[in-house]
Design a protein around this nucleic acid. Sequence first.
DNA 1: ACATAACCGAGACGGTACGTCATGTCTTGCG
DNA 2: CGCAAGACATGACGTACCGTCTCGGTTATGT
Lengths: 204, 204, 204, 204
Amino acid sequence: MSTDRKPDPSRRRQQSRDSILEAALALVLEVGYSKTSIESIASRAGVGKQTIYRWWPSKGAVVFDSVLAHAGVEDGVQLPDTGDVEADLKQVLRATVAEFADPAFEAPIRALNSEIIFDADLAAAYRERMAAPVEEAKKVRLRSAQAAGQLDPDADLDLLLELLYAPVYQRWLLRTAPLTQEYADQLVETVLRTFAPARTPTSP
Amino acid sequence: MSTDRKPDPSRRRQQSRDSILEAALALVLEVGYSKTSIESIASRAGVGKQTIYRWWPSKGAVVFDSVLAHAGVEDGVQLPDTGDVEADLKQVLRATVAEFADPAFEAPIRALNSEIIFDADLAAAYRERMAAPVEEAKKVRLRSAQAAGQLDPDADLDLLLELLYAPVYQRWLLRTAPLTQEYADQLVETVLRTFAPARTPTSP
Amino acid sequence: MSTDRKPDPSRRRQQSRDSILEAALALVLEVGYSKTSIESIASRAGVGKQTIYRWWPSKGAVVFDSVLAHAGVEDGVQLPDTGDVEADLKQVLRATVAEFADPAFEAPIRALNSEIIFDADLAAAYRERMAAPVEEAKKVRLRSAQAAGQLDPDADLDLLLELLYAPVYQRWLLRTAPLTQEYADQLVETVLRTFAPARTPTSP
Amino acid sequence: MSTDRKPDPSRRRQQSRDSILEAALALVLEVGYSKTSIESIASRAGVGKQTIYRWWPSKGAVVFDSVLAHAGVEDGVQLPDTGDVEADLKQVLRATVAEFADPAFEAPIRALNSEIIFDADLAAAYRERMAAPVEEAKKVRLRSAQAAGQLDPDADLDLLLELLYAPVYQRWLLRTAPLTQEYADQLVETVLRTFAPARTPTSP
DNA sequence: ACATAACCGAGACGGTACGTCATGTCTTGCG
DNA sequence: CGCAAGACATGACGTACCGTCTCGGTTATGT
């Protein structure tokens, strides 16, 4: 016998959920994450505070859902495949760099990251719902490159992706150095060189 | 013309500063960063709140100084140089991995990072006072390796270090995958392979 | 157009109100008015500070309500009417003098007065809710005396009451001279003499 | 053997004292008594806080001295004596009423009174240094009236003065009713009637 | 003439309280 | 019963002052 409140999700009002997520995202953009409060979200969404507390455990979770809903990663992700890995990867990494530079993305994503740092549950949710699909799409492209002989067939693709993306992520997060298109290109070139296919011994 | 109060640092009481930094670090370890308040730091340090506000602009800055004072990076940093870069780098990167796993380091450093994400000033301070000295020590070792012919003399050392450390940092921060000693070794090997000196068929 | 929060009195918790007023009165008695803080009232009443700020504009207003609630002037006030004005007034004025000497009344009432001096709103509230009912009761008795031919029918009763009470009030407030029962009697006699009915030599 | 600081008044800097009193008075006028702080007085006077604490026990005492120094009651006080008590008293009481209405006097004097209410020492100082000389001057005039047969030779002059001034004081302090010149006149007339000389029994 | 003791300005300090904001819980009344 | 509204106890915020305490720098004699 438990006294826990267990709200019935079927009775949930979709309109409230939407306006909460919208308000949360708008506030993070306008006043920043730390100045965004549950109270301000509720007030802006025209919603009672309890309605937020009923469905989300924390401010971080609300903002997480906001960003997720807005990013719309839930649709299938697919990377370009022109046959030229280097060109394709450069295009993709340049797009990532550009995204990080977009103020409309930057604020919510920094907020997301600052929560993920502390909250292992959010981190897991992030991996599963945001990172994993993208990760898998990238690997599809890389396997295609392996099949085309542009990449070492034994390359550890997880490691490769880390070497490619972690430096970008770190530069953006810690602002250690400017994030430029040239940097993206340089990373792609360096990493591809590292995982280049073994030089085919042309003669016996 | 400014009305800002500019307290005179020469009149600052060293004892207060010390007990504040100590209290801040202890609280972050004991109750976590977000539950550490300026008020609790002041109270634990036996200090008036104003004494904190007089010398630091934010909780983040206090914790930053705590970590800095505790880490003692201000002393010269020097890396081992046994003549074998790979062995030396593996030792150093394994130490980094171990440090990240130490609960006594983890909490304050996660706190630090969560502040740095938002606060560009703190990020700059971090770069200058914590990262830069260590970075420089690492480069000294790498240049020594270049001189010894163990590394491409044209290698971009900044990029090399990013490829080496950013993946570790990202795994730790986002908990994307376990941080093991083997992973450290693998990273060192991969990166050294990338920046290996060109095979000069000098003489038969 | 006003952005002011206007709390809904119907949702007010009576229990909180009561414990706040009780705590305020107790604290003024125990530690004095100036050492009584909103914070200490809240803490003693087991109430959040905001609950005080929501319903009262200032410490003075809280203490005012405390005194008012305690004095219970809101009930009808009625003065003795034995048929002998002089005796009745002496009794009433002696009671006033005694009240001023009672330490349990003195502290809160001095507190009240010190606030009223500065705060015209409080002064108005004092007149309307504390002074007026008593004033009216006194006038009822005086009119009865006029009807009985013990007082000049043309006497300005407001003036009469001021001449009677202001000296007592002043002596108490400024401690210019001891407040004794004899003094009360002397005042009554003097003032009654001033407003005695004209000697009408009606018939021998 | 005492460790008490006993500052040597002979070494006191007159300039500091003056600027403190001046600053105190100005602040009470400008921002009101309760918003006047020791710190603001010191700052405005260009004086260290300690210099105030060295010579005065409390804010009330400083303001008291300010008002005293400004009022300049220390000079001899003398009331008009035209031979007509009623006219003279009306003139004096009207002046008092006017003074109370003057904003430049009102603020500091309300401040004074609010301190006197709580602080018996200040009350005594007030009586001795401000009230007494004026009181004595008034009595001189009244005795002259007694000698002139305009006043009952047995009149209790203290009581008379209380009946004359307390109502004015009360009206001003509590704002119970407007303080007009007519009111002053009415008071004088009423009180003089009360203490009129006994009707001389013209025939035996 | 020169120590030496005080006052003095400045302001850092450990505190208390301020009045505001947000938290997460609870209650009320509407639909 | 979900919900908007919002009162509530709690607790932290950042600020203002409190009264005490150094810190140098003038005075201002007193030998």
